[in-house]
Design a protein around this nucleic acid. Sequence first.
DNA 1: GCCAACGTTGGC
DNA 2: GCCAACGTTGGC
Length: 152
Amino acid sequence: MRYWLMKSEPSDVSIDDLASMPDQTVAWYGIRNYQARNFMRDQMRVGDQVFFYHSSCEQPGIVGIAEVSKLAYPDATQFDPGSKYFDPKATPENPRWFNVDVRLVKKTRLVGIKELRGHPELASMRTLQTGNRLSITPVDPAEWNFVVGILK
DNA sequence: GCCAACGTTGGC
DNA sequence: GCCAACGTTGGC
């Protein structure tokens, strides 16, 4: 089993939005970065554990734990001309973008980016590196366990 | 709103 | 295949 960190803008889908979804599950649509897509399409498996992270907001940080509940499948928004995620180069026969489904495991306290950066144990966490622009990043088991430890 | 960082695009 | 221009991300 792998561990991941997935960023979402709370103005788009917040942890509370996720909690109120049917089955507390959401399709992780709208990823238009190849590396992030490849993580979902090639590496994510049902049961993988995910830190749900709020980005581009007043208090960026980890706000919950979720899990992959469905393997990657074509992202429906790429075929929708009315969507801002529409991709004219994608066809149902040749989809370009994929997403997994993610289900809430539990909300946690907010562990802000500043707090995360304050722990030397997390110094090499992908998402904390300057210039990191990936919205989906792998998390080392040691990092995962450390963060779970400070959540309490 | 600023801006550093970096991915993508497209002309050559 | 190079690389300049452009767009986007995301913390501050």
